[in-house]
Design a protein around this nucleic acid. Structure first.
Length: 477
RNA sequence: GGUCCCAUCGUCUAGCGGUUAGGACGCUGGCCUCUCACGCCAGAAACACGGGUUCGAGUCCCGUUGGGAUCACCA
């Protein structure tokens, strides 16, 4: 059994999007699963649309997702000689021929065909009747076309779609080289996949219709075609192919929104693939369990909610010290001074992790731990920072001030005493304190909040709470 | 329009001729509780339609409908 070699071959015309990431993931996982190799190739033959920024973004996205490639990145623009060489061979064998039709006349014909509700196809104007070597035209621009088989059919034995048969009359003569001499996609991929020994091509099913032509190219280039696996596209809620108007689609955007690569991978792999009822897969398990056989045939709608849920799972699962590290860049992005008090950071992050579904959300929640002062939410203040609470806050302030060991247990003890002495419910004191300390009625457990805040800040904010009460006395009616 | 692909809860899916059609996200209710969240329990929610084949069809075949992809000197 020959080694399995897969590849991911994006064209650098933009950032790496969710769909591309899943294709890359599948290729990566399948190669690893089989103990094979995963190669990365950048398809940059379209110089007008390819940018170095896009290449950089794609590479960084792949790294962030931990989709490690074994070979490459190879750049098609650096392999022009290879294509030229093959092209010459094809031309001299009569398997390709020059075409002097201009893009204007081609466009016109295509438009006319579409209007007449016919399938637009190249009409073979320049195609020699017999397979023969044609001298290259001089003084006029020309493209080079592949002389495809005109009869019979081409069968794609697809690993996910099954047997798909194409009538060869449906296939027109595709352009291998543009009039400026540069080779086109369908030609380059085949040359490259042959050269790089790719045995297994996993790609979006929008490529399925290209496949028969590519198979013919393999044949005339004297190579055995690889195995094809065309995976269904990812759709937006409107069942249309996922695009920017459906929201964030770039991998980097998810990183910036505070998602974990593990979460994104886990989500993406389950879009079209399943392993019984299992939802959560760590990276080792993915390699072990992923298989093309279990990839479904129908397209899947992208569901951000489920991705968020997975992210929350990985957030909760993260070792605390790692989580504290993870949060640092997001803290910086928010403009908070990056504290080097790691134990404190861990403590803070621990109180928030169960409540946040992303790192960004966590950092947003942390505002009352990080900001100098706290702004009391009006509604919360009106409800809880009332005259009856004033004495409670003051009493608590005194006792916390006198507390010998300022820690969770000690704090809890103080609250317990007050509640017992006054015969009131914990909520009666916890809520006003919560509002005074965080500005809102929603926060982690009040003992934890106090512990994280520390004695000084706590007392300061309790005093501010008292002032708030004084300043907002109900107007006597 | 031609060609090709697809069709189980709103969404992701399990199912591979005999199941009370299972799980997950989301949603609803409850429990827990200092608020929120987590967690736990419960609930509503699906085989697109019509023909066959078969003792028996979500599962196999055909058709209809609906969705999608593709038909570039883009990849």
């Amino acid at each position: 059994m020959p080694e399995i070699r897969t590849r991911f071959a994006p064209s650098p015309t933009g950032y790496l999007h969710i769909g591309g990431a899943r294709t890359a993931l599948f290729n990566y996982l399948y190669a690893r699963h089989c103990g094979g190799k995963f190669v990365l190739r950048i398809e940059d033959t379209d110089r007008k649309r390819s940018t170095p920024e896009a290449i950089d973004a794609i590479l960084r996205s792949m790294e962030w997702l931990q989709l490690e490639w074994d070979e490459g990145p190879f750049y098609q623009t650096e392999r022009m000689e290879v294509y030229k060489e093959q092209l010459r061979a094809l031309l001299s064998a009569g398997d390709a021929y020059p075409c002097v039709c201009t893009s204007e006349t081609l466009d016109a014909k295509r438009k006319a065909a579409l209007e007449a509700k016919r399938k637009p196809m190249y009409d073979g104007t320049c195609r020699p009747v017999e397979r023969a070597t044609v001298p290259l035209p001089e003084g006029v621009p020309f493209t080079v076309r592949f002389r495809s088989t005109e009869s019979g059919s081409t069968v794609v034995d697809d690993k996910v779609k099954g047997r798909v048969e194409f009538d060869n009359t449906e296939l027109d003569d595709l352009i291998l080289a543009r009039s400026n001499g540069s080779p086109t996609y369908n030609f380059c991929v085949v040359c490259d996949d042959i050269d790089m020994g790719i045995t297994y091509i996993i790609r979006g099913d929008d490529h399925l219709s290209n496949t028969p032509r590519q198979m013919q190219l393999y044949q005339t280039l004297g190579s055995e075609p690889p195995v094809f696996a065309h995976v269904p596209l990812i759709l937006g809620t409107d069942k249309k192919r996922l695009s920017k108007r459906h929201g964030a689609t770039s991998v980097m955007a998810y990183r910036d929104m505070g998602y974990y690569p593990e979460a994104l991978n886990n989500y993406l792999v389950r879009l079209g693939w399943s392993h019984g009822d299992q939802e959560i897969f760590d990276s080792r398990e993915l390699v072990e369990k992923f298989d093309i056989d279990a990839v479904g045939k129908s397209s899947a709608v992208f569901n951000p909610e489920k991705l968020l849920w997975l992210n929350a799972h990985y957030l909760k699962d993260r070792p605390l010290s790692r989580l504290a590290e993870d949060v640092l860049p997001y803290l910086a992005a928010k403009g908070y001074p990056t504290s080097d008090d790691h134990p404190w950071l861990e403590k803070m992050v621990e109180t928030l992790r169960e409540r946040a579904k992303s790192l960004v959300e966590l950092v947003e929640m942390a505002h009352y731990f990080l900001a100098e002062t706290v702004e009391v939410d009006e509604k919360a203040g009106r409800k809880h920072l009332v005259p009856e609470a004033k004495n409670l806050l003051q009493e608590l302030s005194v006792r916390l001030g006198n507390l010998a060991d300022f820690n969770g247990a000690g704090i809890e003890q103080v609250f317990g005493d007050i509640v017992a002495e006054r015969g009131i419910k914990l909520g009666k004191v916890a809520q006003p304190v919560r509002v005074a300390l965080t500005g809102s009625t929603v926060s982690p457990g009040i003992y934890e909040v106090i512990d994280v805040l520390g004695r000084d800040l706590t007392l300061e904010r309790l005093a501010a709470g008292v002032r708030y009460i004084d300043a907002h006395l109900p107007t006597p009616s």
